[in-house]
Design a protein around this nucleic acid. Sequence first.
DNA 1: CTTTTTGACTTTCTCTGACTTTCAACATAT
DNA 2: ATATGTTGAAAGTCAGAGAAAGTCAAAAAG
Lengths: 147, 147
Amino acid sequence: MRMSDIIEEFIKDLFDDGSDAIEIQRNELAEHFNCVPSQINYVISTRFKPSQGYYVESRRGGGGHITIKKVNNDKEDYIMHIIKNIGDELTANDVDILISDFLSYDIIDTKEAKLLKVATSDNVLKLSKDLKDKVRARIFKNMLLNI
Amino acid sequence: MRMSDIIEEFIKDLFDDGSDAIEIQRNELAEHFNCVPSQINYVISTRFKPSQGYYVESRRGGGGHITIKKVNNDKEDYIMHIIKNIGDELTANDVDILISDFLSYDIIDTKEAKLLKVATSDNVLKLSKDLKDKVRARIFKNMLLNI
DNA sequence: CTTTTTGACTTTCTCTGACTTTCAACATAT
DNA sequence: ATATGTTGAAAGTCAGAGAAAGTCAAAAAG
């Protein structure tokens, strides 16, 4: 079996504890596998591309490291699923419930939550009941699509 | 973990009581972390730059010290200024112009831009002309307040 | 030919210490 | 009493050493 495949597998196993980001040290890992450090770069650039669902960051210098994040696209699936299930109308209360769900599933961050909430709040819309819930549904779904 | 990161964190924790300015003594801090004093300068110059929202002053000599102030960059002032100058109504075109200004001044990022735009677009609001521009103005201003 | 492996060279970030500058307090001379 | 000099206690600067990671092209393997 190829070195690269072994290293790939090793790195992927690091995600097994359920964390969505792991950190490695290039030299340390290279030493562990008895290969040159740049082999690690090779593995990362061929096996942990964005198109494969990973996002990579790094820092050089003393205490430097490489961080690999798993970007789960279940997020998008989940959002699409929600959007499909939101009808033509949405109350402010519905929005609150959805937002707190999203937050607890890490679908959105707190800033996005605030924006969603404020853009769809009764005070901001200030429309008649029948219009309000319809406009709110449209704004909410369209914003979600862009998160 | 790097020395610099630890010192950075320590200093940032000093702000935790809500104060917007803290004072340290370079030598004392260096001693506390068992590093050379100039390491403190390094941390300050790399982690407490104006672009990161901090303003630093110091005094040498007996009883000298370093003061670090948290400055809310004029980003907020600018946003407030804009909000005040937006009237009761706002067209989709106005929004486009404002958004591209914000982007070029780094007041918002592209994601926020998308959310602002989508939440205020004609297609999403789908309201009569007179209502539309009023609702749009309210949504836009309130979202801006939360960015 | 394509993918993998290797290593020489580069870039970035951190840490350190020697040397410099500034300030306040105290001392001395006019 | 005022001005000047001295000293010690800070903080500042800067360049070099060290610690990672990045790049790229040649060699090797498949």
